[in-house]
Computed example of a mutant assay.
Amino acid sequence: MTAFSLNPEQIAWRTELRALAAERLRPLAEKGEPGRVNRPLVAALGELGLLDGLFGTGEGPAGDGPARGGALGLCLLRESLAHACTEAETALALQGLGAHPVAEYGSAAQRERWLTPARAGRAVAAFALSEPGAGSDAAALALRASRDGTSSWRLTGEKCWISNAPEADFYTVFARTTLDAGARGVTAFLVPADRAGLSGTPLDMLSPHPIGALAFDGVRVTTDDLLGEPDRGFRVAMTTLNRFRPSVGAFAVGMASAALDATLAHTAQRDAFGGKLSDLQAVSHQVAEMAMRTEAARLMVYAAAAAYDRGEPDVARRAAMAKLLATETAQFVVDAAVQLHGACALRRGHLLEHLYREVRAPRIYEGASEVQRGIIAKDLYAGAAADG
């Protein structure tokens, strides 16, 4: 079944990506330690050229081209990897979040020093936006950047729920440079992990990928560390999130597709009540519902990505709709798959046990479902008022 009229080249690339993930990346993922950065896996993503697809300027398998570039290509990449190896997909996405601000707003020196090794998988990136008191409300950031002379600041405060922390090599950090200015008083900085005064601790989370907290004790940053302009960092954050939100939906669709495929195989083979599980109308109708919702989510994700690539004005709303529908759908599909598999799906190491833990977090990170609904409603009312 195709999605959003994928052309033959894109379909072939999806098949290639699934094979790469299963044959080259999954073995590396299985050797990794839950909750830790898997550097061999990140390096393999770089060696295969897959990290190039995060920035749309590479020449590897995920580089530019009519089938593979832009947000649409990124969605296809993330969905395909997620179907076969969620760890590989997550490692790739975290590189994108952490390094995209450098690609988009960094200086030539910053890109040479950090973006080049990040794209090659030799340096691990992280996106440090959330704080203990500022998760969904990103404009409420409290990490303070106090002036220290005319060309430097001191960062003081905390970040929390930061993927790849505390093991990343560099962080895109958002700090408050102007008090009582809301979103307009935030600045983005590139902070190397070895900067004096920066420390971190890992957090033990439900999801198996690395997440930690960071503490900034007077960490010095200068104008050379700026990403974009002072007090314009919120734009850096939102540009990055708008770029990746549709592809979070693609990650969710990939997980839903994997759960659906597993359910089709299981229910067609499992003997029950004198026949196969799939012979029961309650089961077959549930599977049909799972397939319908997965395809609807896929179509919305790809439509949002295509709108982003065309530069349409309603990208924020469409990205929010795509992330919301896809992540909520994936939760439903994976849960239904567990129910139809029964107790075997609850056993540690089962695909669905793994997906059940993975699928919960995307409804929270990069804007919780409630935040997405707020974005959608605000845009709809603004449009209605303009048409008024």
Rank of each mutant, 00 (worst) to 15 (best):
Glu9Met: 10
Ile11Leu: 13
Arg14Leu: 13
Arg18Phe: 03
Ala19Glu: 15
Leu25Met: 00
Arg36Val: 09
Ala43Cys: 02
Glu59Cys: 05
Pro66Arg: 09
Ala67Arg: 08
Arg68Pro: 03
Leu76Trp: 12
Ala91Met: 07
Leu92Thr: 02
Leu92Arg: 00
Ala93Phe: 05
Ala109Phe: 14
Ala109Lys: 15
Trp114Thr: 06
Ala118Ile: 05
Ala126Pro: 04
Ala128Asp: 04
Leu129Lys: 08
Ser146Lys: 02
Ser152Pro: 10
Trp161Glu: 12
Ser163Leu: 07
Asn164Asp: 15
Thr177Ile: 12
Thr187Cys: 10
Arg220Ile: 10
Arg220Met: 05
Asp225Ile: 01
Phe244Gln: 00
Gly249Asp: 01
Gly254Ala: 07
Ser257Trp: 00
Ala259Asp: 05
Leu264Phe: 02
Ala265Met: 03
His266Glu: 00
His266Ser: 01
Ala268Lys: 05
Ala268Ser: 15
Gln269Lys: 11
Phe273Ala: 09
Leu280Phe: 13
Met290Asn: 03
Thr294Tyr: 03
Ala307Phe: 06
Pro313Phe: 08
Ala322Gly: 02
Asp335Val: 12
Asp335Asn: 10
Val338Thr: 12
Ala343Gly: 02
Ala345Leu: 09
Leu346Met: 12
Leu346Cys: 11
Glu358Asn: 10
Arg360Val: 09
Asp379Ala: 11
Asp379Trp: 08
Ala385Tyr: 11
Asp387Asn: 15
